[in-house]
Design a protein around this nucleic acid. Structure first.
Lengths: 180, 180, 180, 180
DNA sequence: GATGAATGAGCTTTCATTCAT
DNA sequence: AATGAATGAAAGCTCATTCAT
């Protein structure tokens, strides 16, 4: 038994519980976002779902946008973990990345749905600027990697937009239908 | 002198100009939706952008959801017009449909963006049930057409979800990046 | 009986009443501001005191700051009305102005108290910028009038800050104690 | 090495530096009050400005009102120190008091501004009752001193309110403009 | 003395919608 | 067909304050 659990018994005090408060807020938020959509989820919903108080939520996150950002970072690192170390061979590397996306997406349908929604909302919602920047950075990094491959002559000279659509388009499209 | 102009004199009302009020509300709404997103657009925004009064908007549409539905119907018929009459040859028909989507999408980036957003919001937003049904019907119709083709033995026996992803995934993915 | 009163009877509809809604909101707000202070008064307080709904208040005023501004304008025009037409003789003009201030202040203790509070809050409260500007304009106008008098040689050459303190300081100080 | 520094090592606490914690909280609070106004300053603002923790602030003061009260006491004793020992001659005594106010006010514009604001807020804000009482006591003491002078026949028989306005009104009015 | 997570009442403001005119 | 005043529920967010450590 951990020290924290111990003291929670001794003092009869409502502890942050073994599960971290911040984590539990994020988990509850994701559940709400999937169920009611990002805009359809109020802070009160997250409060109810997480058991944390309004003040507690704002103690850890500056607002709903910051929660979305934190969730997005989790998703990104989840996909990255799934991808593993990038191969040197371009074909292998790209296939691995797409496969990782599909596997991760099928294993984390909630994150996937959230990602899909927030990606579009971030285009117009001011409270999601941080999310938008994060997405843009990822996109630009991918484009840069592809550019390098092209200069090395290992992939065909086609615009990144088209290459991206050909490589990931079917995967995205499939995942979007699969979880439901 | 038209009837409308006539009544504007008789009643001292500010009339809607030769362009139909309903149309101008729809056009203004689309502009707002693209700029601020569907949820970020209030009826007041549409009022300002269209020049119509609040009451006028509610005279033509029962609410924001109904405006979205009307816009969606415009989009769908726009794509259908672009597709022309379906060919008898399955390969020709499918190619024509995808090509029509790309052409229509490139020509109507606003509609496309709106479609992309509303498609996701409709999954959770109760005020968009009508939109959701419309989308589902379209999806089911496509699946049915594909099923017929399979029974006729003119296309391979793969799940519709995968076929759909292979056929339209790249197009969607490309269009999503193109307008920006 | 006015048309408005008439129709309110015929339709059994809650009319804005003979007293204008906007006016009644202002009057209620002033009452609250005097009783609880500007910052101590919430929109809910004004709602209760005026009988108007929250939405109605925001329909007429963009916020609490705008209500304060409107009240300030009323105060200023009240004092101006009391002052009457400015005399050509500087001594007469100044005395008339000070006298008008005292008379108006004794007759409108609520407005006076509000003025006294808002004058200070406006120095720091961002929602009172409009109030601050209004006050600054009045101050600069008075300084300009005084400057003209000095150039005409009809008043002594002393800094306006000191002249102002000598002329109005006692009046302000007295009024501040009088109403309570 | 001081005791304080000692304990900071023993306990691993971030200590308050040679300057007393209580003092630094008061100084930071005054800075905030001047910059953002009393009501516009939150405990969090004071926390940030002083470097003390929330708990520390509440260790020394029971709340924002208590901080205001402590600052007011500092102001009053500052003015009193400036006034020196009261003369026996009434005219000299009064002049000394007014002069001391002006000198102190010009030397301590922050305290002056705070005083000016809190004096008005204390009329309505329940959390400033202590401040209000302090001010009232000072006022009553001055009135009593003036009453004694009148009974001794050394000053004219005019109401204290008027005498006060004539004596201090110009000084207050001048100081209010001077610091800016 | 010092810390900061936790609380929840309360605030301002927005908004879709109604309806007499 | 057109208007805009009126409504009130609900949203995001702030804040003084408490308390186990």
């Amino acid at each position: 038994m951990s020290l924290e659990q111990c003291s929670s018994i001794v003092y009869g005090y409502q502890m942050s519980s073994p599960i971290d408060r911040r984590e539990s807020i994020l988990a509850a938020a994701l559940r709400c976002f999937v169920e009611k959509g990002y805009r359809g989820t109020s802070i009160a919903d997250i409060r109810t779902a997480s058991g944390a108080s309004t003040g507690s939520i704002y103690h850890f996150f500056s607002g709903k946008g910051a929660i979305a950002e934190a969730l997005l970072r989790l998703s990104v690192s989840g996909w990255a973990d799934q991808s593993g170390t990038a191969s040197d061979d371009p074909e292998t590397a790209i296939k691995a990345s797409v496969t990782a996306l599909v596997i991760w997406g099928l294993a984390n349908p909630g994150h996937l749905r959230f990602l899909d929604e927030v990606r579009i909302l971030a285009l117009t919602d001011p409270e999601l600027v941080a999310v938008r920047n994060l997405i843009d950075q990822g996109h630009m990094a991918a484009a840069a990697r592809f550019g390098t491959m092209q200069q090395q002559g290992v992939v065909r000279k086609i615009p990144f937009a088209i290459a991206h659509a050909l490589m990931l388009g079917p995967a995205y499209s499939y995942l979007r239908q699969a979880p439901s």
